[in-house]
Simulated assay, not measured.
Amino acid sequence: MREENRRLSITSEVITAATASRHLDDLLPVSLEKTLALLDFDLGGAYLVYPGSDLAHLRACVGEGHAPARVRRDEPPYRYVLVDGEARFVDRFQERYPGHDDPAIRSFAAVPIPGDDGPVGCIAVASRTRETIPEDERLILATIGEEIGSAVVKGMLLEELEAALASANRYLDEANAATEAVNLYVDILTHDINNANTAAMGYLYMILDSAEEPTREVIRKSLAAIYQSSDIIRNVSTIRRLMLEAAPLQLVRLEPVIRGMRNYYADARIVYEGSDATVLADDLISEVFANLIGNAVKFGGPDVEVTISVREEGEDRVAVTVADTGPGIPEDLKPRIFERKERGVTKKSGKGLGLSIVRMLAERYGGSVRTGDRVPGRPEEGAAITVTLPRYRPESG
C-alpha cells in the first residue's frame, strides 16, 4: 500500500506540473525536473518523433550530463521504445552498452509517450550512482509516460497549428507586399498612359481640323484606337476597385450620370428617354453606362443609334435599358454574354471585359442585368441590355 501511494503521489505531481502548460517547451522540462527530483535520477531527456522522420529529436534535457540531440528510432535501446512502444529498463548500463558516449551512466530507462497511431516520443532518464532501477520506479516511469501522452500530443498539434498559421501569415504578408507593388506599378502605368493618350488625342484633333481625306480617315482610326486604350485602362481600374474596395452605397441620380456618358460619346447618336430616378449605388455606376454605350457604339458601326430608357420596375426597382440598332446578340450567346472573354462573332478587338464589369457592378448594388432584343424575337435588329437597380424612395411622413 505504501508503494502504491508513493507511485500515485509521484505520478500526480508530475502530471499536475506537466498539464499546467500547453506548450511543449514548458511541459517537457517541467515533467523531467519533477521526475528526476522525485525518483532521484541524474539526467533526463524528452525525445519526440515527427511524421516522416526516422529520427527522434531531443526537445528537453534536464540534469547533469549530455543527451544526444537526436537518436535513430531503429537503433537500440530506443528501437524497443519508439518502434515497438515498450518501456525499456537497462540495469548495469555499461555492461550492456560498453561503447556508449557517456561512460558514467549506471542505469537507464526509456518509456514511450503514446499517441493515436503509436509512440510520438519517449522520456529517457539515467542514473550515475545506481546500478539498478527498482520495480516500483519502473511502474512509476511507465505511468508517467502514459499519463503525459495526451498533453504531449496536444502540444505537438498546437505547434503544427502555430507553424501553419505563421507560414500562412508569412505568405499573406508576401502576397500583400506583392499586391501593393503591383498596384503601384498599375497606378504609374495607368497615369502615364492616360497622360500620353490625352496628349495624343489633343494633337490628333488639332490635325483633324485642317487635314483632308484620306488623312482624316487615318486620324479618326487613330483616335478610335486611343479611345479603346482609354477604355481598357478604365476597365482595369474598375476591376481593381471592385476587388479591393467594399461598396458603401449612397444616393445617386441617374440622369446626370447618363447625360455625362452621352457627352463622353458626343459623336454617337444617343437618345435618352424616361424620367429621372435616384438609386442606391456608388461613384462606379458611370462605368455601367460607359461600357453599355461603348459596346453599342463599337459593335454597331458608324450609323448605330442608341436609346437609353429609364422606367420603374415594381415598387423598389429601376430598370435602365440600353438598346441599339447594331447587329444584335445571337440566341446561343445570350446566356454567356456577361462572362469574361465572351464577345460573340465579331472582328472587333477587345477582351470581353465590359459586360462582365456591368454584371459585377449591378450585383454589387444589389441589382441584376439581362440581355434581350431591341425588337422582341428579332435579334438581328439590335440588342437591348437592361440593368435593374434598387430604387431609393424617401420615407413619407
Rank of each mutant, 00 (worst) to 15 (best):
E162Q: 15
F299W: 13
R241F: 03
P256L: 05
D25C: 04
E245N: 10
A290H: 09
D117H: 05
P214Y: 05
E146C: 02
V111E: 12
I105W: 01
M1S: 15
L284Y: 01
P330Y: 00
E312F: 01
I123L: 15
G99T: 11
I385V: 14
M261P: 04
K154M: 14
G260N: 14
R378E: 12
T190W: 07
V387S: 08
P76N: 01
I144Q: 08
E4H: 09
A126Y: 01
S286Y: 10
T35F: 13
R70Y: 06
S150K: 10
G149F: 02
D324F: 01
A199P: 00
S222A: 15
L48I: 14
G354K: 05
E146M: 05
K34V: 02
R130M: 13
G65T: 12
L184H: 14
I219Q: 07
Q250G: 12
Y78D: 01
L161K: 11
A199R: 13
K351F: 13
R7M: 13
R106V: 04
I140Y: 08
A323I: 04
G328I: 04
G121H: 05
I226T: 08
M156N: 01
R138L: 03
E159L: 13
A126R: 10
E33Q: 11
I285E: 05
D209V: 11
F89H: 09
L141N: 07
V14D: 11
Y264D: 07
R359W: 02
N194V: 09
A384Y: 01
E313H: 08
S210C: 06
A37T: 06
D117I: 00
R7Y: 01
L292P: 02
T190V: 15
E255K: 11
P51A: 14
P119N: 09
A266L: 04
N183R: 13
G202I: 00
G52I: 09
K347C: 02
V186R: 11
D303T: 10
R370D: 07
L254K: 01
G118R: 07
D324L: 03
G145L: 06
E381S: 10
I219N: 10
D25M: 00
R317N: 06
A126G: 08
T132N: 11
S31W: 01
R340G: 09
S229D: 09
V71F: 06
A196L: 13
Y97H: 12
A69F: 01
L28C: 14
N169H: 15
